[in-house]
Design a protein around this nucleic acid. Sequence first.
DNA 1: AAGGTCCCCAACCGCTTGTCA
DNA 2: CTGACAAGCGGTTGGGGACCT
Length: 221
Amino acid sequence: MTRMLGWGMPEQGWRKGPWTPEEDKLLSEYVSLHGEGRWSSVARSSGLNRSGKSCRLRWVNYLRPGLKRGQLTPQEEGIIIELHAIWGNKWSTIAKYLPGRTDNEIKNYWRTHFKKKEKSTQKQEKRKHQLQLQQQQQQEYDMKNVLSQAAETSSEKMSESEGRQQMVLTNPNSEEQCMPVMYQDVASWLDTVGDDGISGGLWNLADDYTVAWIRQLCATN
DNA sequence: AAGGTCCCCAACCGCTTGTCA
DNA sequence: CTGACAAGCGGTTGGGGACCT
């Protein structure tokens, strides 16, 4: 069965995979003679056994004159960060502000350089959550010990001075009702740990230029 | 040295949008 | 208005090289 693809040509027969130098030459010559556009006729007339889609992609991302090759500059990286904050994954829109760079290139760059940072941030969040749980469990455990001791001496009320932990005993046999009213602020504790421990990872991964740019962005926002 | 893992990037795929008869 | 086709876009995949164990 012959399946039709988006560009109105049969799937059978089109070459796929990496382009050869000969194919590049054919495509470049054809486009320089006839101009960009009408990609399906490029596919038919140029002698290339490639779909129009494939021809367009190859031209736009690789053969088009004026394309920059190689690593993005810190300035370009900064522009990407800033524009992505505005437009999200509108790669072609972002690409318009980076002459010589393609949407595909920017998209790939974002995925490899910033997604991993996002991933590491997620790991940090997970770690933080686990620590919170551990902290909570430890406090509950401590609390049970305190309660069991307290239950021995008193079954009424126990309160400590202001600004410190406070708890209310209603029924020593019911765990739920014995939950403390006030706990130490776990988040504030995590904040103190976070500077050189938990949240340090993101900035270790980010290069200086990125950090500088993000700081600059934060300062302007 | 060899096998495994990670990273980068070219290319493909499917969906959406624009244009025209 | 509608359907067909062309073109564009963003997400995803897969190959190959670099790096690690």
